[in-house]
Amino acid sequence: MKTTSVMIVGVGGQGSLLASKLLGRLLVDCGYDVKVSEVHGMSQRGGSVVTYVRFGEKVYSPIVTEGEADVIIAFEKLEAARYSSFLKKDGTIIANTQSIDPMPVIIGAAEYPEGVLSELTDKGLSVEALDALALAEQAGSSKAVNIVLMGRAAKYFGIPYEKWISAIENTVKPKFVEMNIKAFDLGYNS
C-alpha cells in the first residue's frame, strides 16, 4: 500500500503535540509502519508549528514536502493557508476557523488575510472549515480544539470509530476522557 501523509499545523501552544501522539499510537495499534516528525525548541514560542505524520506498509522519510499531503489538519486559519502548497491535488484541508494574529499583524506591519480559506476553495482545493473552538467549548474545554479536529479528520483514515475512542482513553488523563470523547464526537458528527 502507498504511504499516507498527514500534516498537523498550528500555533505553538495550541496542543498539536497531543493530537500527533494520539494519532501515532492509533496507527501503530492498527499495524502500520508510522513516522511522526515534529520540531521542538525555539519555534514553539508562539511560532508556526508543523507536525508530519506518515503511515503505510513501510515509511522512510519522516517529513512531508510540497504537493504530498493527503490531509492537512490546521488548528488556525492562517496556518492552513501557509501550508496549503503541501496539499496533494486531491487532498483535503480540515481547517479550524479560529484566527490568532501573528506579531507582524499585531504591530500593524502586515494584514491578516481573513478570506484566505475561500481563496483556497476558489483555487480548487478541498477545504473543510469548522469552528472547532466553539465545539470544544461546547464539549467543556477550549483546550479540546485538537480532539474536535481529530474527530472531523477521522473519516480520512479508514479506522473504525471504536479504535479512535480507545486511543483517546489510552492517551488523555482519566479525568478528561469523558470531555474529550464528547469533543471527538462533536467533530466527528460536524
Partner: peptide, 16 residues
C-alpha cells in the same frame, strides 16, 4: 508534485 497556494500574502509567524 503539483501544488496550489494562496495569492494573498501570508504574514510570517515568528516565535516571540
Amino acid at each position: 508534485p503539483d501544488s496550489v497556494s494562496a495569492d494573498s500574502p501570508i504574514p510570517a509567524r515568528p516565535p516571540m
